[in-house]
Amino acid sequence: MKTINTLYHHLNKILAPSVDGFVSSSINTGFSNIDQQLNGLQLGELYVLGGAAAMGTKTMAKELALRVANHSGVLFLPQVESLDELTKKLLCIEGDIQSCSIEKQPWDAKLASKVSKTMKAFKQKNFYLKNVWQYNEDDFFQLLEDYITQSDVKLIIIDHEERLFKNLKGSFSAEEKYLFVLKMKLLLNRLNCCGIILRKLNAPEPTEENPYQIPSLEDIQSEYDITRLANHLWIMHRLDYYGIEEDEVNNDTKNRIDLFVMDEDEGYLDNLYFQFNERFTGFEVMEELRKTK
C-alpha cells in the first residue's frame, strides 16, 4: 500500500496545476437530470458506475453512449459481448425495438423498415466499437490515444472492469490494476476526454440498517481502491427487483431505477431517478420524487 499511496500523492501533484487553472468543460448526455443536476459528464475525468446484477448498469452505459454519440465521439469497449451481439442491443435501444422481435425471422415489412431506418441513424453517429481482447497494456493505451486524437472521441466506456483485466494479455495484481486505472485517468486528463468504467457489485443481504439492499462502496473497493482514482462514483439500484413496492417515503418503486451519486468517502451527494420506457428497451427520466414524509 505504501507504493500506491505514494503514486496517489504524485497523481494529485500532477493534476493539481491543470485543475486549479482550468474550468472543467462537459458534454451533455441527453438525460435532462444528469445534464441539469450534474452538469453532464465532465471532460478529463473518470466515472465508476456500479450496480448488482439486473440493476440496469449495462443498459445505462449503452444508452449514454448512443445519446452522447449524437454530438461527440464515443468509443465503446465491450468486455463480454461480441460486436455483433452488442450492435443488436444498441439497435434495439436506438430504435425502441424489443430484442425478441429482432430475433424472430423473417421480419415483417414494418419491422424491416424500422430496423433499416435505425441502422442508417446509427451509422451517422460518432460511435466506435472495438474489441480489445488479448491486447497488451501498451497497445491498449495507444488505441485509446489514437481514437481520442484522430476521431475526436470525448467519451470512453468500458462495460466490465473485472473482465477487462482478464481479456488483456498477462495477469494483473491488485497493485497493477491500480496502476492501470491511474494511467487511464492521466490519459483522460491530458487529452480532455472522460471515461466510464462499469463495476459489478454484490447485492447485500437486507439488514436493519440497510433494508433496501443498497450496495456500498466496500464492494467497489474489494480488490483495490479504484474509488481513490475515480472523480465520480455512481451506483444504480432497483428496489422493485427485490420485491419492495414502496420506498421509505411511500414512493412507488415499480420500474424505477435510482442512480445514487456518491463521493469517494461514501458520502451521498444526489439521487437521480429513471424508469423503463414502455417497451423496456431503455430509460426515461422520472420527475423528482417525495423525499420526506
Rank of each mutant, 00 (worst) to 15 (best):
W133R: 12
L143M: 14
K110L: 11
L90H: 11
D139L: 09
K120T: 13
S101V: 06
C100K: 09
D146E: 04
D146F: 01
K89M: 11
K114Q: 15
D139G: 05
A121C: 05
F141P: 00
E94C: 06
K110T: 09
Y128P: 03
W133Y: 14
N136M: 02
Q124K: 14
Q134P: 00
Q150T: 15
S99R: 10
Y147A: 04
L111N: 10
F122S: 05
I148W: 00
I148K: 05
G95L: 12
L86M: 11
K110W: 08
T87V: 08
Q98H: 15
S99F: 12
K110G: 03
L86T: 08
L144M: 07
F140G: 11
K120H: 14
L143R: 02
D108L: 08
I148Q: 04
A121V: 02
I148G: 13
D108C: 06
K120Y: 09
T149C: 03
Q134E: 12
W107I: 10
E103M: 13
K125G: 03
T87L: 08
T149M: 07
K130I: 08
C100P: 00
I148T: 03
K120C: 04
T118N: 05
C100W: 13
Q98G: 12
L111S: 05
Y135D: 08
G95N: 14
K120E: 15
Q150N: 15
K89S: 15
K125T: 10
K120I: 14
W107L: 01
I93A: 14
V115I: 13
E103G: 11
M119H: 08
S151Q: 15
L83C: 07
V132F: 02
D84I: 06
L129T: 08
K130Q: 14
N126T: 08
Y128H: 09
P106E: 03
K130C: 06
S151M: 06
G95P: 11
E85P: 01
N126Y: 12
F127G: 00
T118L: 05
L83M: 09
I93T: 15
A109R: 14
Q142H: 06
K130S: 15
L83W: 00
Q105G: 10
M119N: 02
T149E: 05
K88V: 13
L143W: 02
C100N: 06
L144H: 05
P106I: 13
Q134W: 00
F140E: 10
Q150H: 13
Q105S: 14
C100M: 09
D96P: 08
D96F: 15
W133M: 14
T118F: 01
P106A: 06
I102K: 02
K125Q: 12
C92D: 15
K123W: 04
E145S: 14
W107K: 03
D146Y: 02
Y128D: 03
Y147R: 01
F141V: 07
I102Q: 07
Y147N: 02
K104A: 15
C92Y: 05
L111T: 06
D139K: 11
K130V: 04
Q142T: 04
